[in-house]
Amino acid sequence: MKIAITSTGKTLDSNVDPRFGRTAYFIIADTETEEFDAIENSNVQASGGAGISSAKVVIDTGAKVVIAGNFGPNAQRTLDAAGVKSYTGVTGTVAEAIELFKSGKLTQATEPNVQSHFGMDS
């Protein structure tokens, strides 16, 4: 399965980015083959709607799951509409996050855990 993880860098030992909409990168990983790609997120500097545009990036990769520190309401609504499952409150490295997901230790988010614009200043 393809999963997306917010990341501060381009590799698996980068940290999970707490921000979803304004994450520096998305790591798109295949849980079976363990192959991965890094996508630079052009929405970091968006004046608005970063969560929605980033959700669209994730949806278009075909990922079925996305892992981040936090999701805002607009991102959550967009991901839900596309049936992409979101997992929140994750810290540590991207590799650790993938392992936690594979071992079923992450809990799925059903509602946004931060307000709009949460990631603007961090």
Binding site: G49, A50, G51, I52, S53, A55, I59, T78
Partner: peptide, 13 residues
């Protein structure tokens, strides 16, 4: 502004 987004299979938010 990300105010409209089309997410496959004719679903527009």
């Amino acid at each position: 502004y990300g105010a409209i987004v089309s997410i496959k299979e004719k679903n527009v938010l």
